[in-house]
Structure formats: C-alpha cells, structure tokens
Amino acid sequence: MVDMLAGLMPPEIWRLIVIVVQILAIVLPLLIAVAYLTYAERKVIGAIQLRKGPNVVGPFGLLQPLADGVKLFLKETILPTGANKAVFIIAPMLTFFLALIAWAVIPFDQGWVLADINVGILYLFAISSLGVYGIIMSGRASNSKYAFLGGLRSAAQMVSYEVSIGFVLVSVLLTVGSLNLSDVVLRQKETMWFVIPHLPMFFIFLISALAETNRAPFDLPEAESELVAGYNVEYSAMTFALFFLGEYANMILMSGMTVILFLGGWLPPFDVAPFNWVPGIIWFALKICAVLFVFLWVRATFPRYRYDQLMRLGWKVFLPFSLFWLVLTSGVLVAFGWLPNQG
C-alpha cells in the first residue's frame, strides 16, 4: 500500500509527504502531552496540598484541559493600544514555535528521530537559548511595567543558567565523544547511565532546567506577588495560550534532555527479560514522566527564590562547580585512558 503510493508520485514529493507525516506524529502527541501535563500539574499539586484538584469536567476531571483550551480559544484576543503590535503578536508565536522545533532531534527510540544530525546537542542548546526572546520581546512590546520587569528578569536569569547548562553538556559530551543524541544514549548502553558517574551534574542540570523554563522556585519572570503575572500580563486568549503551551512543551523538552543525557534515553533500566520486552519509547515516556513529576513536586514544595539569591546560585555556585567538574571529568578520562574514539 505504502509502496504503491510512493510509486505514484515523484520521489521528492513523496519525501516531503513522509516528513510532514513524521512531524505530525511528533507534534500531535506532544500537544496532547502538554494538555495533560497541565492536568497532571493540578492533580499532583492538589494531592500534595490535600485537595482533589480538577474533578468536575468528565471522569476524574480528565476533560478539564479540553475545557480550558476551548475557553481560551473562544475568548477575545486583546491588543493593548500602547503595544508594539507586530512584536506583540510575534512573541508568543516564537515561543511556541521554538518549543516545537527542538523536538526534531530528540531520539524516541533507536533510530526513531526526525533529523539525526551530528550536532544534535548543540542544536538543542541553541534552541533553548533562543527561548528568552519570546519573553523579552513580549515584555518590551506590551508597553507595561510589569511585563517589562518580567522580561528583563527572565533575560538575565536564562542567560545566567545557560552558562552552567553549557558546562554540564560539555562534561557529558567528553564522556560520549559525539554531539549526536543517539550516540549519547548508545554510549550509556555500553557503559552505564550517566547519572551514576555524573551525579552532581545531574542535579545541576535539573535545577538549571527549572531556571531555564522559568518554573518554581525560579519563576521570577511571572512572580504573581510582585509582577501580577510578569511578561504575559497583557496577553489574552490564544496569544496567552501559546505562551502557556510553549512553557509546558519546554518543560517536557528539558525533561527529555535530562532523560537522554543522564537517564539512558530509551534504554530499559536493566537489560534482562521482563524489562527489555517493553518497547524503548515506553521507557522514554515513563522516564520523562518521572522527571516531570519532580518539576511539579518542586513547585508544590519550595518557596520562590529571591532574585539576588538566584543570581548567586547560578554564577557563584553552579558555574564554578560545573567548571571544576569539567576539568575533573577530562582529567579522569585521560588518566584512565577512557577517552572515546581516540586515535
């Protein structure tokens, strides 16, 4: 059937169709996952605070995300008169767009990746460093002081934590010897999950991921008690929804990166009978859920950081430590002759 279809049209067109179908196969489950992440967040925080969480719309409140989506969709998009219209509209689109294109290089299973490029990690790093633009542009274009303060805070915060994320990535890369994300996972298959040798880096990465996605306890760009809602205070309806979707898609993406870099990607925890019957993509999804749970758990548990403490943590604790760990990693690898692809 598929071969017959492929024979009907020129090969370029067929490749284009295949790519579009693959993109849809990634984006649609991602959007559903985002919708149910908001549901999971409310349920988990509800459980932690001894409440029930959403339980009215549908069985166990399972249709709540749909209801929220429909509500946001039907509301009026308000453009503030003082706003810079073009930038104001582009900012949420950019946030959402960046959150989606990063998934092009994520390997879901062995060989299950849209673009198996050789610089996958750098690509992810580049895309995640662009996330700040959506926020800073919306902060500026809204022409509102709360949004502006939120945008500025976020710019400084994300740039600071990217530096330590960069060093964490380099430490992992040294152990792998390749920038390809599939190679990162395959290397963990040969040796062990990197969470064991790089345990401190795992925690630094996780905490930096919280800061990078502007999640509690580092949610200063949208600190309600000081900034109303921060950078997205002037947004309504679908423009607001795009920010929201982008933020949650980024959370899933950062969890995915944590899983690939430290928790063995699609690998089963033990390569023995009952575990390796389960397909890799299920393991990948389960691990992402576990990391996401940590995101929600942290949000329900910790109070917000003060801004100077946030900066201190990023520059004076994480940066020197990750730099030290980088030197230590390369030292150990050279001393024991464990460097990958030598010669």
Partner: peptide, 16 residues
Amino acid sequence: MVLVVVYVGAVAVLFL
C-alpha cells in the same frame, strides 16, 4: 550552531 548559540543566544540578548 555555534553562531546561533553565541551570537543569537547570548550576545544579541545582551544587546537587546
């Protein structure tokens, strides 16, 4: 990728 990481991700953010 390095161009995007360094110039777009860091330098231009500071410009902005």
